[in-house]
Design a protein around this nucleic acid. Sequence first.
DNA 1: AACGCTTGCGCAAGCGTTTACGCGCACGGG
DNA 2: CCCGTGCGCGTAAACGCTTGCGCAAGCGTT
Lengths: 365, 365
Amino acid sequence: MTTMVDVARHAGVSVATVSHVLNDTRPVREATRAAVLRAIDELGYTHNTLARSLVTARTRSIGLAVSAISNPYFTEILQGVEAGALEAGYGLLLADPHDDPGHERKVVQLLHERRVDGMIVAPSAEPSEMVGYLTRRSVPTVFLDRLVGDAHDQVCADNTAPMRQLVEHLADLGHTRIGLIAGLPGLSTTTERVAGYRAALRSRGLPHDPGLLAGGNSEAAGAEAATHQVLSAEHPPTALVTANNAMTIGALRALGSRGLRVPDDVALACFDDFSWADLFTPRLTAVAQPGREIGAAAVRLLLDRLADPDRTPRTLRLPCTLVHRTSCGCPELPRGAAGARPGTAPPAAPATEEGNIPVDERNTP
Amino acid sequence: MTTMVDVARHAGVSVATVSHVLNDTRPVREATRAAVLRAIDELGYTHNTLARSLVTARTRSIGLAVSAISNPYFTEILQGVEAGALEAGYGLLLADPHDDPGHERKVVQLLHERRVDGMIVAPSAEPSEMVGYLTRRSVPTVFLDRLVGDAHDQVCADNTAPMRQLVEHLADLGHTRIGLIAGLPGLSTTTERVAGYRAALRSRGLPHDPGLLAGGNSEAAGAEAATHQVLSAEHPPTALVTANNAMTIGALRALGSRGLRVPDDVALACFDDFSWADLFTPRLTAVAQPGREIGAAAVRLLLDRLADPDRTPRTLRLPCTLVHRTSCGCPELPRGAAGARPGTAPPAAPATEEGNIPVDERNTP
DNA sequence: AACGCTTGCGCAAGCGTTTACGCGCACGGG
DNA sequence: CCCGTGCGCGTAAACGCTTGCGCAAGCGTT
């Protein structure tokens, strides 16, 4: 493997000069620079950033630890992070904690051993050990999707309000028995979405029947079982809300196997939109989380933190959009009016920090 | 940041000893080992693999360059690669070439600058520069999904036979005008799938009408346009095949906007299965590529290559499964007979190398 | 002619590990 | 009692780069 000294020798200069043309870090005579570049090309030299990182103590790479990469929502986040990282000249190290706290600690350590400059982590349901590891070693980190406390930088979607909107919409359509297939206990997203559900029931004066709420563990199989459970209740619901996309699948399976039709027998509204949602029959009414934006915001937060380690931590909440279709029982709108309809979709609200301080979406200096 | 000398001092030993307990690379008295481990724990030391890599010239990380991470097929591949890498103790560096040859060269270089031990790349349609870069620097690489020539290690799905099966099935159902929405020109997957389509027409004695074949550029919007084009032909097709999952979406959109019903007006069969495919009405008949297995096989090939750089290159083809549902026009089967039906789904064939030499799927020594 | 400033570059000391050598000690056999 | 042999460990030289320091030459000023 050719090194900088090979290049230097070949170009008749010192390694210092090679380094400086490579990094553009001090003026070099044009002829010298050309000689160096030619040598690099002729030798097929590739800069060894490992050695560089050793002395600069920076790797220009960030670690991403998210579970369930298969979930389209996380895939969107991944895209946002990838794009943001690349734009800022950072590389991306990926690790999947598989929603297991022990494993989570391990992959976080793996990333730190590789000395990523910072990490973006979607915490598991039991994140304390991992958080402890990171804070003890003061690794710059932003948490994603699931909150761990406001002593850290965090980004997530607004969960409560959209869920409330979804449920209120069903209530306004006349449903009085609305079921919820909730996510994995312990996740802040689950808690918040359940809270939104309860708030909606209260605001519409509906009783809260515990038999209508079942946990689907954030995945399809669990949701299928939970849906069966809810539908087997003495007074089954006439409308159902699912708390994430995987659970929507499960619910649809359960509904299908019982021969129940959506929305005639049971109305359906879901958290998490996805590209196929408008190709189902009926078309799925869903809350769309801004996955890419969440990913992009996370790297922005991280870069800010790297630039200034003493910054006060921020929690960013990004607004969701209610994509109104027909599974909720509303009639199909004429073409051209597809998507959100007035009164249900919020205006594109700006991201807010906790406490509703508006935040500049572009770049916070 | 605490280093090995801190640990050594704290434990009252030399750095060599610390290194050796960390790597388990020479016998250390139990008491000494304990002292070192305690020091590590007390100081919160994390091994710096950068420095290690500098001297060992290995990073224990592999680079993955695939475009369109959003595509569920690639997501599966990613999972397979992640799992395989983790199991072998390798880290994963991710980069998205965005299907652009120039960009592709850049991300490959970025990965090489970080000195990944090897790379797994899904080549763009114009991969020569990237391939040149890699071979010149002799970076161990396995190519994915799209072939670049048998001088390299490669893994892909079997494209021709399943596509042929799909089309022959439609023909056997009585269709004589079968349309194909094909992928991005230049990709080997596109070529092979088109070949499968042609082979099926030939084997069933159907004429090849060029008006029935349109390019959908491997993405939804392109496929939507292509579908409209095909359906506007003088003699429109009565059945349609889409060559990947994104294009299935596009085709469904076009079909929907024309008010055509599947399978009554137009039968549909697709390349690429996905988790929602059996929730559509009608349920989608599709060829399932073994994404995870492809990813896993790629890291196996890569590890083999790393173990023995002089190994002769291998091309691995993994079999697909035809998942028979109802969009092709076949009647719904009674419950319990879901999935493949006799005669259409191939027995789970073993992976084959080019030339049909069966290959041990577990681990080739 | 002497001086100082600028420009362009080289020298060499790290960065945090691994690992080839080698050294001291305890022990057993002659 | 001496010597050979393990065993357990330390010393120091890399690995490939960055960067502070400093030197030499060219040039404009006084």
